[in-house]
Amino acid sequence: MIRVLSIVLLVLVGGSVTAQAADKPTAPQVKDLTMKAAAVVETLGLDRARERFHPDGEFKFGEIYVNVIDYNGTWLIYPPNPKNEGKSVLNVKDAEGKLLVQEIIATARGMGEGWVQYHWLNPATNTIQPKLTFVKNVPGRNVIVYVGLYK
């Protein structure tokens, strides 16, 4: 029994979200990464968080990246295309017409955190794919952090 628990712990620790693009993270790993990114924003602020989220590494690898928006729907951190930071995406629709940013804001405002589904361009494949995104309100910062997983 101890040997089985040791193996399970080894798999869980070794299976955490890392900067290895070859590993496609699971929904629980995406949620954990979102929570960790929200803690970075809460503790360090946006500028220092941006420095950690933009380069490839723990918070950006393969198709995984951290987004940060404010409650007005302005992209504050968007690693796939940083030149879009500062732009309003409040009325952006996904490939099927869903007002996804409004749903992200409603989820963060209403529940503090949760999952949102939509269809978005995967920067790793350059194709529109279903995406499951975990959304987290950052207390005291009036921003929302989210990370998505392409299905």
Results as ranks from 00 to 15, higher is better:
Q129T: 04
A49V: 05
T107S: 10
W120C: 02
E103V: 06
T43S: 15
N137I: 08
Y78D: 01
A49K: 13
G86S: 01
I104S: 03
E113R: 12
L46Y: 10
Y78C: 08
D70M: 09
K60R: 15
T127L: 05
G114W: 10
R50H: 04
E85P: 14
R141H: 00
G57D: 06
E103Q: 15
G114P: 12
V135C: 05
A106T: 05
E63I: 10
R141M: 04
N81S: 10
W75K: 11
L99F: 15
S88L: 10
V92C: 05
P55I: 02
K83S: 14
N81E: 12
K83G: 05
G86E: 01
V116C: 12
E51P: 08
V135R: 08
T125E: 03
R52T: 07
G97K: 00
V41A: 00
P79E: 01
R52K: 15
I77E: 10
E103T: 10
L44W: 10
Y65L: 02
Q102V: 06
G112L: 04
S88H: 10
E96Q: 15
L132M: 11
A37E: 06
F61E: 09
L100P: 06
V40Q: 12
Q102K: 14
G86Q: 00
P139V: 02
A39M: 07
A38V: 02
G86L: 04
G110P: 11
A95V: 08
Q117P: 08
Y78H: 14
K131S: 02
V92I: 12
N67D: 07
G45W: 08
G140M: 12
T43A: 13
V138W: 09
N137H: 15
E42W: 11
A108D: 12
W115E: 00
D70Y: 13
G57Y: 07
E51M: 11
D70Q: 07
V92H: 08
R109D: 00
P82N: 01
T133Q: 05
E63R: 15
Y78Q: 08
Y78I: 07
G73R: 00
V40L: 09
N91Y: 10
K131Y: 02
Y78T: 01
G57F: 10
G97P: 13
R109F: 01
F61K: 13
P82G: 03
W115M: 00
I64S: 07
D70A: 07
I64F: 13
V135I: 15
L132V: 10
D47I: 11
E103D: 15
P82S: 00
Q117N: 15
G112K: 06
N126K: 14
W120A: 01
A95G: 07
V92L: 14
T125W: 00
N122A: 01
A108I: 05
P55L: 03
I69S: 06
D47F: 09
P79N: 12
V68I: 09
V40D: 12
S88C: 08
Y65T: 01
L44T: 04
E63Y: 13
V89N: 15
E103G: 06
L99T: 05
V66K: 03
L132E: 14
H119P: 02
P139L: 00
H54Y: 08
R141N: 00
P130F: 09
P79M: 07
T125N: 03
Y78W: 14
